[in-house]
Nucleic acid binder design. Sequence first.
DNA 1: TCCTTAACTGTTTTT
DNA 2: CAGTTAAGGA
Length: 774
Amino acid sequence: MDPLFESLNPAQCEAVRHVEGPMLVLAGPGSGKTRVVTHRIAHLLREGVRQSEILALTFTNKASDEMRTRVGALIPGARVWVSTFHRFGARLLREYAGYVGLTPNFTIYDTDDARQTLKRVIEAGRIKTAHYSPERIAAAISQAKNQLITADRYEPRIGSPLSAVVAEVYPAYQQRLLASSAVDFDDLLLHVANMLYQNADVRSELDARYRFILVDEYQDTNRAQYVMLRAMSVDNPNLAATGDPDQSIYGWRGADINNILQFESDFPSVKVVRLEQNYRSTQSVLRVADQLIRQNLKRKAKGLFTENAAGEPVRLVQYATQDDEARSIADEIANEVAAKRRRPRDFAIFYRVNALSRSLERGLREQGVPYQMIRGQEFYQRKEIKDVLAYCQLINNPRDDQAALRTINTPTRGIGRKTIDRLAEFAYTHRISLLEAAREAVQVDGLNPRAVKNVTGYAALVDRLGQLAGAAVEEIIGTILAETKYREPLMDGNSEEDLNRLANIEELLTDARQFDDRREGNGHLEEYLENAWLVNETDDWQSESDKVTMMTLHAAKGLEFPVVYIVAVEQGVLPHERSINDEEQIEEERRLAFVGITRAKERLQLSYAVQRDFRGQRRRTVPSSFLLEMPREEMELVEVGADHWYPPDWDDLDDAAGGEVHEVHDDGPHFDVGEFGAGGEGARVAETAQGESWKGSPRLTTAAKLSGAAPIEPSGYSPEDFVQGMTVTHPEHGPGKIVALSGSGKNRRATVKFATAGERRFVLVHSPLRPAGK
DNA sequence: TCCTTAACTGTTTTT
DNA sequence: CAGTTAAGGA
């Protein structure tokens, strides 16, 4: 039998075999979607399609890397272009920059740079923003861009003061971006879509160039992406979209679920294939997911099924506090690992918001469980990295005012705000870039000789660096560091933070060297920068490394793990409070839960804590309404260390449904893990370990105590008890010495130097510090 | 101009 | 609570 089809079910084969014409593959979670896509690419190649005619688009670098690897494994030597939408947009824009008023060396601003630019535009234009924050305005602009509304076509809506503000800010912002030859993330799609729309010749050229287009996660496309795809599928309508409406979780980013729901009317001749067999999860997991998602009205019903084993019931656990939650999850993982039943990498913990990771991290650290946290864009966002890269940006694109602003006084060279304002004013009136203005500082009014000297010195420095543009990236960065003496101030101070920064800079140099090694020859600065701009830390996620993975539910899409914990399944968190008043948004939150649940292969635990510290405040929580929508007969309820606090209504259902309730009260901190299928022995291990680690964790037991609980004074010492030079102890960092004090009362802060942890600052009333020896 | 300190504020998800 | 901005002092 043909190896390409050997391991595929009939529906999968049908999709793989499809060559010409539009196709929609509705693929449930775990249904082998990526396999279908990669096998289809292989099939197309075998049918004689040239590889340069195939374009595969994904949303994340991680997804595209994986697809590229898998295509490579299937057809050795194949070089099909697999890219993210944004990368694809960037590449087209470099080719056709002139069409949209950019230069080919344009800069891509990350959210941060874009936000700064927006603020500057508002300030410089003295635009009255009526109490709307730049974030609000930026969000509105982004929304407009995602809907393909350009600055010149934006119309304020009557009765919306925000839109009136946006109508003013948006064009000014866009103009400023173009003047700097820069784009924000949204522009990467907007410009391309616009260009295709307005230039018939370009459109048909690209339509012909990419005869076969495959799109992953089609349910997440926004209007701009939709137009891009449609425009390139007119003469050659071989668009194959893969997706699952139930996994559309990016509506807030402009994703339009209607794109997939209406695919069939867009392409009447479309072939529709449904992949409904799940190869990933147990029946329990799948039934819980399925039951939940059925509550959504806006969807295409699917009949998910699996031939996998029934599996363990999905566990729903109530904890007293978030610390209990974190601790017992960490304990459980540690035990499973210690018993050699599982490895750290088998586990994943998901949460709705990044802020929830803190206590989990602590729990895992205490247990010595290795973990990795997936956070967006961390490395390249760090100040020191951005500082250095800003010089690179400026070398690559001297018109980039944002980079000039960032570098002009970094490291400090005596160029203050006033000076910068005057320069900017001069640049603006003469319609030149900030860097050009800096070169001509002599002509700028109101600058004292010292300022002129500093500014022209800066311009000369940048110009000198600019001659390096064609060098290897490591050399460029190395020279920047040397010429700007960026590291000097960091080396004097030896605070932990400074050391960290230095280490990060070293890492950047290593990163650059590795990049250089991968490239032949020099002159790839722009490519390096583009990587930095478009890369996301998720892409660094290493499935090989043996660590527990923690991430947001959004980041979890496309992944799978043997054991999954979803924490804080609470009203206001999942569904998030900002979605709670809107049925459409509630549905998206439900899909988010669905995505999380369906990542689990064998074992799934949902949990909530009766009380949770939020925004510095202790709150009583309400379990998520989604819990009520799940089939109880598939679930096991476990209470840990708290009084009854089921989701409302569940008590009533108690008799009707067969699900057992295990009550575990304070006096006996044990987990009824025996119920959990793994067998008695493991359960016992879990029990003792948890019992032990729970000792000494004070837990409030009754609702009365909880609601009346005053903020707990952690130390029992008043802030004034601490004096300069005093030796103190910290539960985590050990002994240390107070090197500085400031403020008084609840604002009193101390800087403590620890033997091991370096210098740290504490707000005394909140800190666990104790005078030593007491 | 720059650094420290105090007040303020805003909170989702990310290419 | 944390991160950021505004104000004030050297």
